[in-house]
Design a protein around this nucleic acid. Structure first.
Lengths: 340, 340
DNA sequence: ATGAAAGCGCTAACAC
DNA sequence: GTGTTAGCGCTTTCAT
């Protein structure tokens, strides 16, 4: 079925004037007589005229669309970010095209290419887990495509990024446990080579330092936190050999493992054993009242990333400004005071 | 920063031929000499030519983009549907623009208008809770915009719809409980005026009938299932007065309420009290091992909806074909056999 | 086998 | 104050 549309020409013909006059009248151009303007507006209304954005995009070489590449949409954190992106985009008159990499670099490369070909004005990217090489993004940026990264950002690329303040988060989490009276806090950390692992650990150390405590290095376990089972085993072993009185888990699955290990070990969580976990998955926070959660501000991240990108798109500067934002985390505390 | 692009003209200039020849060569037109084609392809490759999709869209009045309106993106079910939509769209060369209504009709009307103005080729819609009037969609459809509804569909509009087979789901859920040995099954139903409420109830009755059981109407509670607290109260009251041995909850929050009420009442779930709940939120299924869940096939729904829409978009017919699909639900059974 | 020209819908410099 | 024209990038009819 053919779509019926009225164009500027239709209005012009109707009124016996030229298309350019109509165009100007619709934009309230100062050289057009009030009379003509009124007439044009009336007819436009009558015929239910809607400007053709495709024509505009072509004319201005600007699509007013931004692209997004996320590892997966079906993920609480990323869909929250998308929501934040939508929020800003909408308010600034941009459409949002969502694509997902499914954690594959190949898909990621396809996506960025597709988005570029579809003339998006800029792209927001959170890297797939496989992405250690960023040349496909670099190439696009060199072609003049503005890209802002969020959450999972490239370490080397000189570009705008929005991330979570992991140091602060690590500190908040640890402080919380210390405040509850816990002193021997185990740490189920991520892989040693990851920036976030180290930032969170730094926060962990800082909190200890601030409280006048020393960190027992034996209580830090690296790279055993990628799933619940692994974390469970690591936590149980830790409990047996090093007797921590609380656990800091680097993600929510690890936190689940930690809790189960503590319970298995005879601990009462959260009454006599504290667990705090980073989460971008919301499940822990919502469903497990025993875990104190460090919440990642997804919506705000989306907002900030979109704002940065649009600023870059609309900037006249030849030289792109590079900004790095670190958003504060949020502590969702549970009542888990250690019984003294 | 200006975006550099090579156009067909650049290739033409480079080779000293006309743009139209280049265009034809690139489409492997039979009247172009093999020699020219080769040269064109070579230069296109060299200059990294990418067709301008905006120009194409304008030329063909087809954007190869479909719009989506969901109540909210941050919702397991809807993000799953979106994922399914992406899947099909991608494979058929369509972009997807996502918008959310945030459960407001006003936003919904804005969204459909925006999408229309942005020349999407068709739209997939799941209605907001506020939407009982569908004239804004009807108007668009009359203008020739293909629309396919999914999950929350309009009852009156004559249009393609994709939904879940609630009757089957209700039946599956009930059968499951009956098979476990439960005989007095309470039913926390939705509002009486909703189609899904009645379909699920019908399945509930059918399962009873098939098993030679009669339904005790007193065990059916309407419209007290919209949140956990409400459901809890209703379930507790039901337990006290009507002594059911199992509960069928019309959604996952209600299921949570039902479980808590049963536990409060001294029941052991799932050992001596069965609970089954519909879920499009996944939380129950993933996190509460006591609830048997009727899963709604989100991904498949997205796929089917997108397929239907694209078929409609690409159909040459003047008359749009209206199809209604009901997708089978999936029972995620838990081990909750009644101890006999 | 290839080129010139018109047009998708809109805008803006340049007429008058 | 309004019309004419050219052009955004591409395709396609009509010439040659």
């Amino acid at each position: 079925m053919k779509r019926q549309t009225t164009t500027i020409k239709d209005i012009a013909r109707e009124l016996g004037i030229s298309p350019s006059t109509v165009s100007r009248a619709l934009k309230d151009h100062f050289e057009i007589s009030e009379e003509t303007k009124k007439a044009v507006r009336r007819v436009a209304e009558e015929l239910n005229y809607q400007p053709n954005s495709l024509a505009l995009s072509l004319r201005y070489s600007k699509s007013n669309t931004i692209g997004v590449i996320v590892p997966e949409i079906v993920h609480f954190f990323f869909s929250t970010v998308i929501s934040g992106i939508e929020d800003i985009a909408q308010s600034k008159g941009y459409n949002v095209i969502i694509t997902q990499s499914n954690e594959s670099v190949a898909r990621e490369m396809m996506n960025i290419q597709t988005l570029f070909n579809n003339r998006v004005d800029g792209v927001l990217v959170s890297l797939s887990k496989e992405s250690f090489d960023y040349t496909h993004f670099e190439a696009m940026m060199q072609k003049g495509l503005p890209i802002v990264f969020f959450d999972r950002v490239p370490d080397t690329l000189n570009t705008s990024k929005v991330t979570v303040d992991d140091l602060l988060g690590g500190q908040q989490a640890t402080e919380h446990l210390i405040k509850q009276g816990y002193k021997r806090i185990g740490h189920l950390a991520g892989p040693k080579n990851l920036d976030i692992t180290n930032a969170r650990l730094e926060g962990f150390r800082k909190a200890h330092e601030d409280a006048g405590l020393t960190v027992d290095e034996d209580l830090i376990i690296y790279d055993q936190a990628s799933n619940e089972g692994e974390a469970y085993a690591a936590a149980f072993e830790l409990l047996k050999t090093k007797k921590p009185d609380a656990l800091f888990a680097s993600n929510d699955l690890a936190a689940m493992g930690a809790i189960k290990a503590a319970q298995k070990y005879g601990k009462n969580v959260p009454q006599d054993f504290g667990v705090v976990g980073f989460s971008n998955w919301q499940f822990t926070a919502l469903t497990n009242p025993s875990i104190t959660t460090i919440e990642q501000p997804g919506f705000e991240m989306g907002q900030h990333a979109a704002e940065l990108l649009i600023k870059q798109i609309e900037s006249e500067e030849e030289e792109v400004s590079v900004e790095s934002l670190k958003l504060p985390t949020n502590l969702l505390a549970r009542d888990s005071s250690k019984k003294v």
